[in-house]
Computed example of a mutant assay.
Amino acid sequence: MSARLLLATANKKKLAELQRILDLALGAERVALAGLGDFDDYPDVPETGLTFGENALIKAREGARRTGLPTVADDSGIAIDALNGMPGVFSARWSGRHGDDAANLDLLLAQISDVAEENRGGAFVCAAALVLPNGREHLVEGKQRGRILRARRGEGGFGYDPIFLGDGQIRTNAELDPAEKDAISHRGKAFRELAKVIAKELPR
Rank of each mutant, 00 (worst) to 15 (best):
G154L: 02
L176G: 03
A60V: 07
I80A: 11
Q144T: 10
D161C: 13
W94F: 08
A199I: 10
N104Y: 01
L176H: 08
E29S: 14
T9G: 05
Y160R: 11
S113V: 13
C126I: 03
V197Y: 11
F191I: 14
R61G: 00
A183E: 14
L194H: 01
G154V: 00
D44Y: 00
L130F: 13
G159L: 07
A82R: 05
V31E: 02
F124V: 07
W94L: 04
G188L: 09
G166M: 09
R30N: 06
I21E: 01
R20D: 15
G49Q: 09
R30G: 12
F124G: 03
K12Q: 14
M86G: 15
P203Q: 04
A25Y: 08
A127F: 04
G156E: 04
N11S: 09
E17S: 13
D161Q: 08
T67R: 05
K196H: 12
N119W: 11
G146H: 02
F90M: 09
R65G: 03
A25E: 08
A110F: 06
G68D: 07
L176R: 07
L33G: 15
W94I: 01
D81S: 10
E141P: 01
G166S: 14
G168K: 06
Q169E: 13
A183P: 13
G142I: 05
S95E: 12
L57R: 14
E47D: 04
R153D: 12
G156C: 12
Q111A: 12
N134R: 08
E29M: 02
K12L: 13
A82N: 11
F52L: 00
A127G: 10
I184H: 11
A79L: 07
R61Q: 03
V125R: 12
L165K: 05
G121N: 04
A73F: 11
A82G: 13
N11W: 03
G77N: 08
A56I: 09
A10E: 12
G122Q: 06
H138A: 12
P133V: 09
L194Y: 06
T51P: 02
A195N: 04
G77T: 12
L18Y: 02
T67M: 02
E137W: 02
A60K: 04
A10M: 04
Q144P: 07
E17A: 09
N55G: 13
A102T: 10
V197I: 14
L36D: 05
K13D: 15
E117G: 00
P203S: 07
K196E: 13
K181G: 00
Y160Q: 10
A92D: 13
M86L: 15
I163D: 15
A110K: 15
A116W: 14
E155C: 11
G135T: 05
D106F: 00
P43Y: 01
A190N: 10
G35I: 08
T172N: 06
I112A: 06
G157L: 05
A25V: 07
V45E: 09
L83T: 06
A179T: 10
R30M: 08
L83I: 09
E137C: 02
K189D: 14
E141I: 00
L130T: 08
E47G: 03
L165V: 01
I198L: 12
V89L: 07
